[in-house]
């Protein structure tokens, strides 16, 4: 443990300040990457974690999905969309089952989870029969398994989150490049 803090003891004020700044750089680059992805993909949340088993066996709890939401890219049946329903905080990842597009371009569609036996009308807001474009957060374009488990653990056990954050911050502050 002593060797761990050796670096810190040998630092002077300026060097310590430099470590703090580089930690700030890491945090702000992460934020920049996230915001940059939002611009590139057109989605308000370009990466989501699958939280339920309603799309099994395609997606399991903890899988990471990469989303895009380009305006010119039409929504079609069979695509997997991520949508938000009024009165529910957590976005839902389900597949489009039916779609009707009018002459003026307005489109309404109905979704269903691959692992659910009925469509999603029971999940929508009371009286809502269809989703429209404004409900859509994004469309699933890529899949990375398991990685999202980290965030699920962090949300379920906040202690893990604080330990991880403290560990990371300590590591960056103490270790010299």
């Amino acid at each position: 443990m002593d060797s761990l803090f050796d670096d810190l003891k040998r630092m002077n004020k300026r060097q310590f300040l430099y470590q703090v700044l580089s930690f700030g750089m890491i945090v702000s680059s992460a934020l920049m990457i996230w915001k940059g992805l939002m611009v590139v993909t057109g989605s308000e949340s370009p990466i989501v974690v699958v939280l339920s088993g309603s799309m099994e066996p395609a997606f399991h709890r903890g899988d990471l999905l990469f989303l895009t939401n380009f305006e010119q890219d039409p929504i079609r049946v069979g695509e997997i969309v991520v949508f938000k329903v009024e009165g529910r905080d957590i976005p839902i990842v389900h597949r489009v089952l039916k779609l009707h597009e009018r002459d003026n371009g307005t489109v309404k569609f109905l979704t269903k989870g691959d692992n659910n036996s009925v469509d999603d009308r029971g999940l929508y807001a009371p009286g809502q029969l269809w989703l429209t474009k404004k409900d859509i957060v994004g469309r699933a374009r890529g899949l990375l398994p398991y990685v999202g488990m980290v965030t699920i653990y962090m949300n379920e056990y906040p202690k893990v989150k604080y330990m991880l954050l403290a560990g990371l911050a300590g590591y960056v502050l103490i270790h010299r490049e």
Binding site: R76, V77, D103
Partner: peptide, 13 residues
């Protein structure tokens, strides 16, 4: 009514 209608009537995994 609609210039495009798409209805999935059957699927399989």
């Amino acid at each position: 009514n609609n210039k495009l209608n798409q209805v999935v009537i059957w699927d399989k995994i």
